[in-house]
């Protein structure tokens, strides 16, 4: 019988997802990579399949594009650090302190916003930020259409994706290790720093993959709550694919977050993030 043979079963199980992955994902990436080295003809706006580094030299020689890359990476990094700092105590409370019932409630509270539309959440923030909204009328803080607004919304949007892996990592730590640390005389802070944190680090790094990459690739939040200087890499890609039809330039721009993420994932693997989930 076919299913008695492990290789046959593995083939059956893996063929559809592998085909999907190779055909739709890897092949698309390869085409993207190739397209990035093409140009468009300025007269016909047709794509000319001639190899050149023109798009990349345009990106790196322009201070404006360098600024945009720096802004995108900078905000993505800031969002990641902020979410990690907020998520750690929250996840710790859920994993080690909360009663099962409280834990369930907290879980629902984290996961429930994921059911709401991304756009609905961003627009809600717009109402909070706007002139006459909660922030400006009560606290007299004017955040609307600024990079601070973009940062705040991203921190909010991606927080659950940080909490969950950190929670999973913290929950896995055997209580005996913490007890051992305390028995050996370490106070709370020392135990957290030298026992909990290193053991939870793979979870934090796993969460950071999400917060970082999701921020890196987003262009809708900057579009909706960002100001006049909130252009992200994604916005550049979007505006070049439109009527301009400069697909090669958009492809070149799209390579940048891919390269950044590849480097990030290599670093994350070194920190053991892939064993965490």
């Amino acid at each position: 019988m076919l299913w008695r043979r492990p290789w046959a079963r593995a083939t059956l199980l893996l063929t559809p997802p592998l085909a999907w992955f190779l055909l739709l994902y890897v092949a698309a990436l390869v085409v993207l990579l190739i397209t990035a080295f093409w140009q468009i003809n300025p007269f016909t706006t047709n794509i000319e399949r001639v190899f050149s580094f023109g798009n990349f030299s345009q990106i790196f020689s322009s201070p404006a594009y360098r600024n945009i890359i720096g802004r995108t990476v900078g905000i993505a990094a800031a969002v990641t650090v902020t979410d990690a700092v907020v998520a750690f105590p929250f996840a710790y409370f859920m994993a080690r302190i909360a009663a099962p019932r409280t834990r369930t409630i907290l879980f629902v509270a984290i996961l429930l916003p994921l059911w709401a539309s991304y756009l609905a959440k961003v627009y809600s923030w717009l109402l909070i930020f706007t002139k006459g909204g909660v922030l400006s009328s009560i606290l007299n803080v004017h955040l609307i259409y600024s990079n601070w607004a973009v940062f705040t919304v991203f921190c909010y949007l991606w927080l659950p994706f940080m909490i969950i892996p950190v929670y999973a990592a913290l929950e896995r730590i055997p209580p005996s290790q913490i007890e051992a640390s305390q028995d050996l005389g370490a106070r709370t802070w020392r135990t957290t720093r030298l026992v909990l944190f290193p053991l939870a680090l793979p979870g934090i790094v796993a969460g950071s993959i999400f917060t970082f990459s999701l921020t890196l690739g987003d262009y809708i939040t900057p579009l909706l709550v960002g100001g006049t200087s909130s252009t992200f890499i994604g916005n550049i890609i979007y505006s070049n694919i439109g009527v301009a039809n400069n697909v090669p330039f958009a492809a070149a721009m799209a390579m940048i977050p891919i390269v950044i993420m590849a480097a990030y994932l290599l670093g994350a693997r070194a920190l053991g993030a892939f064993e965490a989930v």
């Binding site: 698309a28 993207l32 994921l114 969950i164 929670y167 799209a254």
Partner: peptide, 29 residues
Amino acid sequence: AVGLATLSVLAACSSGGSSSAGGGATANS
């Protein structure tokens, strides 16, 4: 399982984003 489900949804989201960008490039070129 809940965590993994969330992660896989996310992975689907992010890969969907990139592959559609790539797909767009393919269709055009």
